[in-house]
Amino acid sequence: MSAAAQRRAAPLSRARRTALGLVLPLAALIAWELSARIGEVPSYLVAPSAIFATTWEMLASGELWQHTRVSLLRALGGYAIGGACGIAMGLLAGIARPVERFYDPVVSLTYPVPKIVVLPILIAWLGAGDASKIAVITAAVFYPTFINSLYGAKGVNRLYVWSARNMGAGPLRVFAKVILPAALPQVLAGLRIGLALAFIVMVACEMQNSRSGLGHLIITAEDSLRFDLMYAAIVAIAIIGFAGDRLLLWLRRRALAGQAIGKEGAHG
C-alpha cells in the first residue's frame, strides 16, 4: 500500500468491508440457485436450496454424522500420532546436534515427496481399513510438525538459555521453561499446516479406496448420480476443515497468551 494510495482512500468501515466480502459468495449462490431453478445448468449443479435440504435431512437421520465420525477418527488418529512423533523428534533434533544431523538428509530428501504415493502399497499390505489410511496421514503430518518444531527449538535465543543456566537451572528445567515456550509458536504453526494436510489426505484416501467415510460418500453419491448427497458430503468436509482450523487458532491464542502473536487469519 503506497503512501499515495493511503491518502486517497479512507479506510473502509467494518460494516462496509463485511458487506463487500459477502458480494461475491452471495452473487454466486443466487446465480446458481436461479439457473438451477430455471434449468439452464447441467444436472450436477444441484440448487443450493436442495443441497441444504439434503444436508439437513441427513443430519437429522444421523447418516451424515456416521460418515463424519469415521472420517474424523482416521484424520485425528493419524494427526495425533504424526503430530506427537513430529514434535517430539523435532524438538529433540533442535536441541541435540547428532539427532539433527541424522534426520537432516533423510527428511530433506523425502520432504518434497507426496506421501500419498505409498497408499496403494499400504492398502495392499494393511488392507483397505483404517490402518492404511491412518499410516498415510501420520506420514503426511509428521513432516511439517517435525520441521517446524526443529526450527522452533533451534531458533531459541542462546542468551536466554545461557542466562537460565547461569541462574542454576538444570537441563530439564531449561527445556521446560525456556526452550519449549520459545519454540511453541512455531510448533503450533507446524501443527496448523499438519491439520490441513491431514484432512486433504483423509479425503484423498477415502476417495481412492474405502467403504466408509465422507470421501467414500462423495464417490458413491457421484456414481449413483445423487448429486445432492455428494454436495452434502462436500459441505461436511468443508465445515470440518474450517472448524478444525479455527479451533487450532483459538487454542493457539490461549497457549500464547502473553506472547506476541504473528500473522493470523488466512496465513498458513
Binding site: 459468495p25 468436509i237 474450517f242
Partner: peptide, 23 residues
C-alpha cells in the same frame, strides 16, 4: 474486501473434495 473472506474461509477447506464436481 471482495476476496479476503473467500481466501480466509476457503484456505483450510480441502478443495480435493470437489474433484467429482470437476470431473
Amino acid at each position: 474486501a471482495l476476496f479476503e473472506p473467500l481466501f480466509s474461509f476457503g484456505y483450510p477447506v480441502p478443495k480435493i473434495a470437489l474433484y467429482p464436481v470437476f470431473i
